[in-house]
Amino acid sequence: MQKINLEVNGKKISKEVPDHTILSNFLRDHLNLTGTHVGCDTSQCGACVIHVDGKSIKSCSTLAVDVNNSKITTIEGLAKNGEMHPMQEAFKKMHGLQCGFCTPGMVMSAVDLLKNKKNPTDQEIRKWLEGNICRCTGYQNIVAAVKEAASKL
């Protein structure tokens, strides 16, 4: 067991976890933050993407102990005072989701993209989202949503 201290969505957290706890499971099972989804569980699909110290990573391929002393943002941490994040608004407005399973990861990846690049081209959006797989809408509206958010942010 290891004691880890984290800041998750602005809240300081201190927990004892078994050494081999996977971060996505820690968020879902220990903190009840089930917005982070686990799809393929082999770091291909991107449903589990969260931010660690401001950078998007796949939480299904990271140990919880490995992010000790980090700041974590999950999909639950994006909305502020009941207002959706502009990326969430844009996904809603542009119909960038259907079943919604991949959406938390898509949104978290896309937020990181706009931090690195303010007005990405379609091609840059598609390249950045290579690690996020959607199996229902196709990607047209997801790309449109990211562009919409870019114009608002």
């Binding site: 770091s43 993407v49 998007s56 990573i57 796949k58 990271t62 990846s109 990181d112 290579e130 996020n132």
Partner: peptide, 9 residues
């Protein structure tokens, strides 16, 4: 290599 998230780690 991989994708953006893999390249971040």
């Amino acid at each position: 290599i991989g994708d953006a998230q893999v390249r971040n780690r």
